[in-house]
Each structure stands twice: as C-alpha cells, then as structure tokens.
C-alpha cells in the first residue's frame, strides 16, 4: 500500500486574475508505517494538499497514484480510495449527525456496503480504539463533551479501516488534557493498527514529539521533508515563514549562546533535561 504524488499543481479560479497556485509542483511518496507531521501556516496549502491524497480534489496538473494506479483515471473507484486513505477534517465533531454515537460511526462502513453485523463490529472496534467508554455509545453525540465528540468523529473515519489516516489539526481548540489524549490515541493507533499517520498541525511541540518525518509547506511548495531534528535545526527559516520550532529548541539554543556547549537538536523536555545534566560540571549551581 503506498501513495505516490507525482508533480501535482492545483490552481484556484484558473484563468482569472484571482487565480492562485495553491499547490506548486509537489512530488513525494508516503510509504507504509510512517508517522508524518505536516506543518505550515494557514494558507500554505496544507488543507488543499491533504484533499489531494484521498481524491477529494483533483490536481490541475500531475498525478496521484495509489498502489501504482492513477486515482483520477476513468474507472478508478475513488470511494474505495477514500476508505483506504481516511481523512479527519478540522473540527470533525461538526460532521456528526446521527441520533446516537454508534450509528454515526456506522455511517462510513454502511456507505461501503457492508452487512449490518460487520458495520456494528467495525464501529465497536473503532470506538474502542478511540477510548470512548461504552456508556456513551447509545447517547446522542451532542450530549458528549467537546473532546468526546471529537473522538467519536475520529472513530467514524477509523471504522472505514484506512491504511493511511490523515488528521487535520486534530487538537485545535482542545485544552492540554484533551490534546494529550488525542495525540496519545493517534500514536496508539499507529502502533496497534499499523497504519500510516499524517498529522497536520501548526503546533511544532506536538509534531516534534510524535512524528518521525516532517513536511514543511509554504506557498504551495514542500519546503522541507526531513527528520524532526534536521527540520527544527533550521528554525530561523521556519520563523521566516510564520512557524516556529518547539520551545525546547529555543531554550537549548539560548543556553548554547550563553556558553553552555549543549546540543540543540533536542525535541522534548526530557531530552533537554538529560542534555543539560550531561554538562552538569560546567554549571555554576
């Protein structure tokens, strides 16, 4: 299972004075099993880009290949593609509509034409994966808290059994606890279900902790495609395009400027603490 993007561009309002190159010659491959962080400021083209990945939008030029097949060729079943490449939009709780949570999660499997028993089985399994306790399953989705609604909505996509799961700002508007719950859940899904994750975010701190490959988008182009360490070491460039590195990177950078010879390609608080402790002898405390 692999997704290949071959030199795609996307132009809004083509042929008018207002035409914008939302995507500008992007090529990349998404192999199995990666946890990819996709970052870029609002308007950088990341939302347009993820809609290319599951065939919701067709590129103006270029091709998207799923297992070697062009997804915009005649006869290609894009509905099947949408099941394989699951896309969770920003504020996914805004798409809930059924009378109870379980039925809402069954919506996707039903659209795939599965039997009632299979739909239920998949819904139950998906709700377990998002850690939504059974007591909520027969409740109206609108009686749930914001964080629970979001998990129910993610289950709705998960029940399609995607092999790639794209999440667009899944932590937007949540408090620190809700954010950690969602991100840990996503990591758990990657490990347990062996699915590829594409996490779209503008929080570098979130991406740094979880991703093993980071794509940085700016003005419709992929500006960087590398490991978190390498990407965040270029934090000056990130700032120039309205992004920033994780807070710890700045702290380590500052300490280094003040004469403590620490490494600066650090991504988490624990790594930072270890690195500072490794230079314990050079501190005046």
């Amino acid at each position: 299972m692999s997704l290949k993007i071959d030199d795609i561009t996307y132009v809004y309002e083509k042929g008018t004075a207002m035409s914008v190159n939302a995507l500008d010659h992007i090529s990349l491959e998404i192999p199995d099993g990666q946890f990819i962080g996709l970052v870029g400021h609002t308007g950088s083209g990341k939302s347009t880009f993820v809609q290319m990945l599951n065939g919701l939008l067709a590129p103006t030029t270029g091709h998207v290949y799923w297992n070697g097949q062009d997804v915009h060729e005649k006869g290609f079943d894009r509905r099947k593609l949408r099941a394989s490449v699951g896309l969770v939009f920003q504020y996914p709780e805004h798409q809930l509509f059924e009378a109870d949570v379980l039925s809402d999660v069954e919506f996707g499997p039903k659209n795939l034409g599965l039997s009632e028993a299979e739909c239920k089985e998949r819904a139950v399994e998906a709700l377990r994966h998002v850690n939504l306790p059974e007591e909520f399953w027969d409740k109206s989705p609108f009686d749930l808290s914001g964080g629970q609604q979001r998990r129910a909505a993610i289950a709705g996509v998960l029940a399609m059994h995607p092999s790639i799961l794209i999440l667009d700002e899944p932590t937007a508007g949540l408090d620190p606890l809700g954010r950690d719950e969602i991100l840990n859940m996503v990591r758990g899904m990657k490990e347990k279900l062996r699915i590829t994750i594409v996490l779209v975010s503008h929080s570098m701190d979130d991406v740094a902790q979880y991703a093993d490959r980071i794509l940085v988008m700016n003005a419709g182009k992929i500006m960087m495609d590398d490991t978190p360490e390498k990407v965040f070491s270029r934090y000056k460039e990130l700032e120039a395009i309205g992004l920033s590195a994780p807070q710890v990177v700045y702290i380590m950078q500052y300490l280094k400027e003040r004469g403590l010879p620490v490494k600066t390609n650090i991504l988490t608080v624990d790594e930072a603490v270890d690195e500072i402790l490794a230079h314990r002898g050079e501190l005046n405390v």
Partner: peptide
C-alpha cells in the same frame, strides 16, 4: 529561557 540561563549560572 533567560531566567533559566541565569539560574544555571551562565553569563548573560
């Protein structure tokens, strides 16, 4: 980070 640097005894 400035306060951290100071607490660690680094020159500013």
């Amino acid at each position: 980070r400035e306060e951290l640097g100071e607490a660690l005894g680094l020159e500013s």
